[in-house]
Every structure is written in structure tokens, then in C-alpha cells.
Design a protein around this nucleic acid. Structure first.
Length: 278
DNA sequence: AGGGGTACCTGCGGGC
DNA sequence: TGCCCGCAGGTACCCC
């Protein structure tokens, strides 16, 4: 489900609503969610009484810095949600598998229909050595995300098509299946183009589209599409879902041609065959 | 080393 | 109605 705009929205809300609060108790009913080497019992023991110092994002990972040198990492995968509210509000969601009771008597919950989400508890000093963080590519919202940096990142790969490269978290972080299609539509570049065959002009258009699309999607609090799966921490929809130009669309708003759907590496790609010629 | 296939899960909508 | 199939916003791991 969540790509950079959704995770960024959730992270900002989490930081605003839970920074400085204490964790009274941890609860979960799906132990496979914990991917730490730490046991379930130990996890509960460690997290109890910790203060939430800061919540930030690295790629699609939510990073929760705790007191006493501990950090909790959450990845929402396809159907994960973070909800914050009263016990009554949380109880309305049938897929809650993890809860933190907070010192303001609100609950921070992780809901996940498909149970793919994961939680890792690690010493803060070791967090950057985790494989899910260590290998991450460039961050498109960072100040140092210049065209130069983007171009260098693309040079990491000699083979492969642009759509798959945009989704490769080891090259550039945060872009998933929806925004890859949206970015290439905006840039008017074919998703089938081999990385080596891209002109400088095309790479510049993709670079601009990445910044434009991701920032705009964040302004509208992410994309909720027809399945209504994505919600923010209040349970509200992301409004960018209604503004998508390619993903699950019928017609190109620029040239009125049919938007086509094709499988790439098992994932649906949407593109305009007129605007995005190879 | 890196690519392909598959596993991890549940639900929904469409076709027969 | 019911069953089977394909599809879903993402990795992670095994095998060659």
C-alpha cells in the first residue's frame, strides 16, 4: 500500500501526536510481525516505559527513536496502517495486530489485513547497519537530491528498464508501483525504456517528475484508491488517489488515448502509448 | 553478483 | 449460490 507520500504523511502525524509520550504497554497477537532477534517477551519488556523521542522516515520505513538508546522500525508493506486514537477508535479496525498504550491514554496501533508488515526493535546505534536501512538508495526529498545525484544513482545499474529501476529501493527510495507509473506518465517516458537508452533530456524530465509528483502527493496526504485500503493515522483517505493520471486510469488526460496496462516483473504498469512512446 | 521464482497473507470481484 | 482465478500500494529469501 504505502509508498513515500503515504509513509511521509503517517510519519509526520506520528511525530506530531506522539513525540514526548511514554509507552505504557505493548500488545500484539501476530508474533511473526516482530522481525528482531529479540524474543516477544523481551520486546515487551524493553519497550515498556520508553519515551518516544522522535519519529522519522527512511525510505518506506518508519523510524521511532526511543529513550535509553532504542529504536523501533516499522514497515507497512502492502496493507499496513498506523492508527492513533482512543481504544474505542482503534477497536473499529478489525485488522489490528499490534498496539502501544501511550501516556496520554491514546493508542498507537498497527493494522494489517495481509499481515506482511514488520516491526524491528534495535539499538539506535545499530539501526543504520540493518539490511533494510544500509542498502537504501538516495532520498528524493533530501536537499542533496540534485539531478547530478539522481544521474549517479541511475549509473548503479547497467541493465533493466526504467520502471523497475525507479522502484528499486537500493537506487532511489520511496517509489512504488503507483508512483512509478505516475512519474513516467508525467515525464512522458516509456516504462519499457532500457536505462542505458535514456537521453539526458529524458532523465531530467524523470528527475523533475519525481519531485513534482511526490511533493504534490504529500500535500494531498497520499493516495487512497478504489480498494480504500490506505488511511492516515486518523483513518482518513489520501486525496491524491482521485488525482492519479495513469494508475488504474482509462484515458490519458493529455491526448485522450487509452491508458494501457501491462505486467512488468509481475506488477501492473499503466502508461499512455501515445505520450510515452519507446 | 544478480535475476527469476516463490513465499508471506487475506479479501474482493468477475466469470462460469 | 459457490468455486476458482486473478489481482492487490512490498519486500525477502532461495536457488541457479
Amino acid at each position: 500500500m504505502p509508498e513515500l507520500p503515504e509513509v511521509e504523511t503517517i510519519t509526520r502525524q506520528l511525530n506530531r501526536k506522539t513525540k514526548g509520550l511514554k509507552i505504557k504497554k505493548a500488545w500484539f497477537d501476530w508474533p511473526k510481525l516482530l522481525k528482531s532477534k529479540i524474543s516477544q517477551r523481551k520486546f515487551k519488556e524493553i519497550i515498556k516505559g520508553k519515551t518516544i523521542l522522535k519519529v522519522s522516515r527512511k525510505g518506506k520505513n518508519i523510524i521511532i527513536n526511543l529513550s535509553d538508546g532504542w529504536t523501533c522500525l516499522i514497515h507497512l508493506k502492502l496493507t499496513g496502517r498506523i492508527l492513533i486514537g482512543t481504544e474505542g477508535f482503534i477497536a473499529k479496525d478489525p485488522y489490528v495486530h499490534f498496539k502501544l498504550e501511550l501516556s496520554d491514554n491514546k493508542v498507537l496501533a498497527l493494522s494489517d489485513l495481509r499481515k506482511f508488515a514488520k516491526i524491528v526493535l534495535e539499538k539506535t546505534e545499530d539501526i543504520n547497519d540493518l539490511k533494510e536501512i544500509k542498502e537504501l538508495g538516495i532520498e528524493p526529498l533530501a536537499n542533496n537530491f540534485t539531478f547530478q545525484k539522481f544521474n549517479e544513482a541511475l549509473l548503479k545499474k547497467e541493465k533493466g528498464v526504467i520502471k523497475e529501476i525507479l522502484m528499486n529501493q537500493n537506487i532511489i527510495v520511496g517509489i512504488g508501483n503507483i508512483y512509478a507509473s505516475e512519474i513516467l506518465w508525467e515525464a512522458k517516458v516509456s516504462p519499457f525504456k532500457q536505462i542505458k537508452s535514456l537521453s539526458l533530456e529524458e532523465k531530467k524530465k524523470i528527475y523533475k517528475a519525481i519531485k513534482k509528483i511526490l511533493l504534490k502527493a504529500i500535500r494531498f496526504k497520499g493516495s487512497t484508491i478504489a480498494d480504500k485500503m490506505y488511511r492516515d493515522t486518523k483513518g482518513e483517505f489520501g486525496k491524491y488517489g482521485k488525482m492519479l493520471q495513469a494508475y488504474h486510469q482509462e484515458k490519458c488526460s493529455r491526448c485522450k488515448s487509452q491508458i494501457k496496462r501491462v505486467l512488468q516483473k509481475g506488477r501492473s504498469t499503466f502508461y499512455c502509448s501515445q505520450c510515452q512512446k519507446e
